[in-house]
Nucleic acid binder design. Structure first.
Lengths: 117, 117
DNA sequence: CGTCATGTGTCGTATATAGTACACAGGCGG
DNA sequence: CCGCCTGTGTACTATATACGACACATGACG
């Protein structure tokens, strides 16, 4: 769908330049998948991995898990759980923010963080 | 998982008391599934239907689609799309709001609706 | 009393998801 | 030149998802 694999490969090769432990085989071993599978994932020959595997991969590459999950076409299940507990509330909020500029959303995040309630 | 089926059955029977067109068979026909399947869904014998079918069902029963999807253990794909476009931003916001009282979330919704940006 | 609609039990299936297992060619280091 | 690590091609599989098709017993109704 997206360039998930391409992105992962770029990240991995960049890390590899400084550390040979970031080969396909060794990374695959650390995130508990077969090397051939990771290879296919990086070349987009198969769909992006499951949420669990994607999160492990993000940790391995030092990338943001939510961002990598998004590239994989997924939304973290813990976020989904939060939404499912108050569907109407969160549905309204998210749809209302669909067209809002980043700055506005960011401001809301800060506002909430500062315990503004 | 939850009492999705139970809830649907209750809604349907309530409507049926006023209108005989809300039998399992007729509702099933209107949302394009087999009666036997809807029956099993309502009794929790099988998992809740797909997003598309759940949304049709919500419309048929006059229920909120996001709420019914939540009962089905799902989050509307259009919400997921919004989140996936700005994963870090929305992830932060949603997690920050996890423990916030309904009132606070509601206030944010209004704030945004009033074009506060 | 026949028929018509109702709910439901049984069995089967198509598609997607998320990988594994194995083998093989190429390059590099000693 | 040999062993080792590298990436990758091919083939297969297990589990979940989301239903359909058909048959059958039951009860109301005209």
């Amino acid at each position: 769908m997206t360039h998930f694999g391409e992105y992962v490969r770029t990240c991995r090769e960049r890390l590899r330049a400084a550390d040979p432990r970031f080969s396909v085989r060794q990374v695959a071993a650390r995130i508990d998948v077969e090397p051939a599978y990771l290879s296919k994932v990086e070349r987009g020959e198969v769909a992006p991995p499951s949420e669990a595997t994607t999160v492990k991969l993000a940790a391995e590459l030092g990338e943001d898990p939510d961002m990598l999950l998004a590239l994989a076409g997924k939304v973290s299940s813990d976020l989904q759980e939060i939404i499912k507990k108050r569907p109407r509330l969160f549905a309204d909020l998210i749809r209302a923010l669909k067209a809002a500029p980043d700055k506005a959303v960011l401001r809301l995040v800060r506002e909430v963080r500062d315990g503004n309630w």
